[in-house]
Amino acid sequence: MTAHLDHLVIAAADLESGQAWLEDRTGLKMQPGGEHAYFGTHNALLGLGGSYLEVIAVDPAAPAPAYPRWFGLDEGEMQERLAAGPALVHWVVTVQNMGAALRLSTEDHGEALALARGSNRWQLSVPRGGALPMGGVLPSLIEWESVSPASNLRSAAVLERLTLTTLDPARLSAALETLDFTGTPIQIEPGPTRLQATLKVNGREIQL
């Protein structure tokens, strides 16, 4: 079993401001994503060459779900954080067999939900209560049953490095080793929980 980066997650208080924030930093135009009816969210996407970055926010036009939204978007702490501006809060890795990955992992990634939008079909691990696993540094798992959106996205940005800061580096390292994560340069550092992505765009290094 192997796992590789599927996408990075930037959460925002609203989609328009989140998209503008990322476009201003990268100089790149994001592409439309869509609505997630199950959680009442919507997103916009930026290709990273084989993976992608999404800006996600609560969809004000969608009815509120009867359960907590993913990525902690309903939590007061997250809402207070996003009031100060968009933030890189999480990452998601592709696995070949969701059931096997959940059984073998040393951590609790949540339960696998079967989700769909248009022709897209996928399973996603979502922690009970919607909170981010290990504060966001432990990835969620995704198994695509259709083609990943990354294959249809323009790409002028390259992810050079993902830095994961956690109070328990050994625990996170063990979890990624169990998942047999490969492909993306990952740097794990000790300290308060934080994610930082370093992109290369037209020769410029940009940190998110």
Rank of each mutant, 00 (worst) to 15 (best):
G129T: 13
T106H: 13
I206L: 12
L113V: 10
G34V: 04
V89Q: 06
H36D: 11
A13S: 14
E23Q: 15
L124D: 11
G130W: 00
V55Y: 00
E107C: 01
Y67E: 13
L22P: 05
V92Y: 02
E205F: 10
V9S: 04
L88M: 05
T2W: 04
V89R: 09
A197T: 09
Q207R: 11
G27F: 04
I142M: 02
H7F: 11
L208S: 01
Q31N: 07
R204D: 10
S146L: 00
L28W: 05
G135K: 15
G136Y: 03
E111H: 07
A116E: 08
G136L: 04
D59Q: 08
A3V: 01
L159G: 09
Q196G: 03
L199I: 13
F181P: 03
R128M: 00
P149S: 07
L82N: 12
D59M: 03
P65R: 04
T198W: 01
L28A: 05
A197D: 09
E54T: 06
L176G: 07
H36I: 07
P65H: 01
T184H: 00
L172V: 14
P185D: 14
N43V: 05
N97P: 05
T198M: 06
L48I: 07
E80S: 12
D14V: 07
A87I: 07
A12G: 06
A44I: 00
H109L: 01
A57S: 09
A87W: 03
L199Q: 06
S119W: 12
S51Y: 10
G34R: 12
T193N: 03
G76P: 12
A170K: 10
A131E: 13
G50L: 07
H36R: 14
